[in-house]
Design a protein around this nucleic acid. Structure first.
Length: 283
DNA sequence: CCTTAGTCCTGCATGC
DNA sequence: TGCATGCAGGACTAAG
């Protein structure tokens, strides 16, 4: 599942390839991949030049030359792939064709390239935000911005589990299941710890490790567990460095105690029962 | 304020 | 071997 580091990796790869290019054609193969009316989407987007490519939480954002934005959320299985040929036709949902003066990646002719939005489970969404309309207004601040995580954690008065809070995109934008578990392990916090009961020492610890873990994952070009790929269709390598996520019943890298998996807020959560002690009744 | 269940989907794992 | 079942999961919505 693409989270902040995966989306950041994709944005960095996309930026030199499509900035300054014009969207010459859009083809929609699964209409529900578009938020709102498909015809209006095509009409607005076609002929627009890409002014900027950036990330906001888990959203890939394209600033268009008319001041509007095109956002893409990959959810679980979404991918943006340059010129993948015909082999992924089965899961192709939207195809963007670009032309312009910059050098296309994997393109047949100079300045031209196509970008395929491929999404097995069809949960991903493309959305148009007209000029003047606030972009993603409900999204919280970015956990990579200095001081942000500590500020947010300080303000929490909620009794909700810290795992739930980390996944709440209104509070912090971009953290998903993998990096929430990794950060809680590094901070030695049990996922069910009520957020407002976390001591200032542990709050400090969590706010320190979270940006480091995210930055390291970006360095590794993201975590490829199944679907996630770079636009070149190559894999990330951060999966080799995960310490807790997906390691149910395997020994903790710190103390060899067997890692446990529980469900918090409907999401699977992995933790070490010894390193991540619980103040709360029950494991 | 909060939590839970349902919705969207498909591929893969499980069980008989 | 084949078929049925169920599970995962990000964000949103409705219900309690």
């Amino acid at each position: 599942m693409p989270e902040l580091p995966e989306v950041e990796t994709i944005v960095r790869a996309l930026r030199p390839g499509i900035t300054g290019k014009t969207i010459s054609h859009v083809e929609i193969f699964w209409p529900r991949s578009i938020v709102g009316d498909c015809g209006a989407f095509i009409n607005h987007v076609t002929g627009r030049e890409i002014s900027e490519v950036f990330r906001r939480g888990k959203y890939i954002c394209l600033l268009l030359d008319d001041g509007g934005h095109l956002t893409i959320h990959l959810r679980m299985t979404g991918k943006l792939i340059y010129c993948p040929g015909e082999k992924d036709k089965k899961h192709l949902r939207v195809r963007f064709l670009f032309n312009g003066n910059t050098v296309g990646v994997g393109s047949k002719s100079p300045g031209e390239c196509s970008l395929h939005f491929i999404d097995t489970r069809k949960f991903g969404k493309c959305q148009l935000w007209p000029a003047g309309e606030a972009l993603l207004p409900a999204l919280g601040p970015d956990p990579l911005d200095p001081g942000v995580v500590l500020d947010v954690l300080k303000k929490i008065t909620s009794t909700r589990a810290i795992k739930t809070v980390l996944l709440d995109q209104h509070l912090l934008a971009g953290i998903g299941n993998i990096y929430a578990d990794e950060a809680l392990f590094a901070a030695r916090l049990h996922p069910l710890t009520p957020a407002r009961e976390i001591s200032s020492i542990k709050r400090g610890r969590l706010s320190r490790v979270l940006p480091v873990i995210l930055a390291a994952a970006i360095e590794n070009k993201g975590t490829t567990l199944s679907d996630y790929r770079l636009p070149s269709s190559s894999s990330g390598s951060n999966q080799h460095f995960l310490k807790i996520y997906g390691r149910d019943k395997q020994p903790c890298p710190n103390c060899q105690t067997l890692i446990r998996r529980i469900v918090v807020n409907g999401r699977s959560s992995h933790f070490c029962p010894r390193c991540q002690k619980n103040n709360v009744p029950r494991s």
